[in-house]
Design a protein around this nucleic acid. Sequence first.
DNA 1: TCTGGGGTCCTAGGACCC
DNA 2: TCTGGGGTCCTAGGACCC
Length: 398
Amino acid sequence: MDAFYASVELLRYPQLKGLPVVIGGGRRKVDEAIRDLPEGRTLADIPVDAFPRLKDYAGRGVITTATYPARQFGVGSAMGLMKAAKLCPQAIILPVDFDQYRAYSRQFKQIILDIAPVMQDRGVDEVYIDFTEVPGGQREGGRVLARLIQKSIFEATGLTCSIGVAPNKLIAKMASEFDKPNGISIVHEEDLQTRIWPLPVRKVNGIGPKADAKLERFGLRTVGDIAAQDRDWLIANFGKATGAWMHEVSWGRDDRPVVTESEPVSMSRETTFDRDLHAVRDRAELGAIFTHLCEKVAEDLQRKGYVGKTIGIKLRYDDFRIATRDQTIDRFTADGKAIRQTAGQCLKRVPLERPLRLIGVRVGALVRADSAEAAAPATSASRARTPPDAAAQTASLF
DNA sequence: TCTGGGGTCCTAGGACCC
DNA sequence: TCTGGGGTCCTAGGACCC
């Protein structure tokens, strides 16, 4: 989907069309500014001048989505609000409304499913679709079906998307970025050298900042540069799995199927504070937030019908380093109090001297609540062990 | 005044078992 | 009298993705 969150916001505030708009996460002030907007006859009647501007509301947080006019200023996803405010102070800022995005997400995915049932979920705004067996899926190399999907989604929602059609997921994903927004790109196997090899390695789904930097150190900038290397050389320098994978990918090879169903592995909740908090000085505030996160995860598990037995915490310190601790208990649970109890034990094992920026709670090793496993006590093989108290002096903090 | 939130997968060491 | 080999599970950290 094209600029998904922002596009959904423009559906309710069409007066913002053509303007630089950014969606920024988790800023209470922005939520309040939107709540306090003057009432128009409809949302579409609220004057543009009444909307909050980035320069007045930038704080701790990042941009999740920017409209195309905002991108003209160099503003983009994952950019800090402070930096974005310098590039485009007059941009309008709106808070994230996940419930709304999820609703549109369900809608566009259902439209696709009705046309092409082999669909893999890739988050709220992206899917893989296997056209192979869809009647008419091969017409004009897939373009006819791609057009039908675009048209159906637009007519039902007013949202646009960009589609890449290719022999596998790897190439299709890259192709989907060739013609944005509202475009269709078809890439054939024989287009590898002309259309894929010139791309920077970072365009490969799975090559992130670290791999990019390492490849750069070897002077490898493009996908073609990787393809020109010996498979054995890649393995020698990047490891058995990664090296072999890079070799396959650079030659456009990918045999992963489109997976239509999968079970969740973990569920978590985390929050970044408005200001850094200290385990001792801000103990009460932290404790309340921590308990609340445990309750939220428990609600999530119960609503979706899962139980888990590995409870974990995550801390982000003021210096951005991350610490995680987890503990596996001997019964599956989705109970807030049980989660809080074990998460509290985890907290005792982690250093709490530095100010904290974020705290999170996670439940993993999930099974469906109605499964046989969920009811059974731990087997001897998976018997939980109690880890030692590594930071006993902080034991009383929570 | 840098840098969200919710995920998956991989690696590597250690415990433990047969 | 020197301690093999294979397997699973658990834990911590890290890379990456949307």
